[in-house]
Write a protein that binds this DNA or RNA. Structure first.
Lengths: 127, 127
DNA sequence: ATAATATTAGTAACGATTATCGTTATTATT
DNA sequence: AATAATAACGATAATCGTTACTAATATTAT
């Protein structure tokens, strides 16, 4: 995986890094088709998966609906609006939300976590 | 939704309530076919979804792979083993893991959260 | 340049879930 | 208890997000 450079992967990572809205593979595909008319949706999926597997980006499992991706690989929390479906960073950093776990109470090995808040975003509340 | 009683829904809820392993829709379908040979997979999906929508059970989005369901509707955390894929309750209760949020720092409305830990379970560590 | 092969575009296939549709079961009404 | 209204069913087709396949292309090493 990721043994040779490719213009497509470079463009995918650049696009993801440039935005903060946690786009889906299809979101990125739609944008990149303007600059790369022949790019394939499969290429976008393949590269996003490879980048996530190698730890260069983060994959956000998003319940029902497509996975979303995040170029910010620091452990942080997300918020999903149950009305419009948008996913945003949760302003509080992970450390302040999640205190150190008491590892004594669990026998396995914890490598990480996914913390997603659900609710209604400011925009949808105003409507 | 859920306007009339049905034997199938009763059996689905009973089966889910009787176990603690967070089964998938297909897991439940496989078991129930023994006692209800004509039950349809669609019926299991439809009822689990309806029960989750009405708040009687919990749906656990499980990244890649099928959704899982939980008859314990209290807010609690889960642990997923990245080796065998099992999903178990996390022994620490939610309150001790997640402190009260500072609501001042967020403009929207938070209705709940989903907290899933990832790692390797005790059994898989021993192998 | 040449060779080796990772990556691509295009498309088919896949798994999980939902929708459709004619039939059956449940509930309310007579 | 029979009848009517309709929710829920079983069977299956359709959908959606994603992955797998294949021949062609691009990248890297020789």
């Amino acid at each position: 995986m990721l043994q040779k450079h490719s213009k497509q992967r470079e463009a995918i990572l650049a696009e993801l890094s440039a935005r903060k809205d946690h786009p889906t593979a299809d979101d990125i595909y739609t944008v990149l088709r303007k600059s790369h008319p022949n790019i394939s949706l499969g290429t976008v999926y393949r590269n996003l998966s490879a980048l996530a597997d190698s730890g260069k980006i983060l994959r956000l499992h998003n319940g029902k609906g497509s996975d979303r991706f995040d170029a910010d690989i620091s452990q942080h929390c997300h918020f999903k609006c149950t009305v419009c479906g948008c996913v945003s960073d949760f302003s509080a950093d992970a450390g302040s939300v999640l205190p150190p776990l008491d590892r004594e109470c669990f026998e396995g090995r914890i490598d990480g976590y996914s913390l997603m808040f659900y609710g209604v975003c400011e925009k949808c509340l105003q409507k």
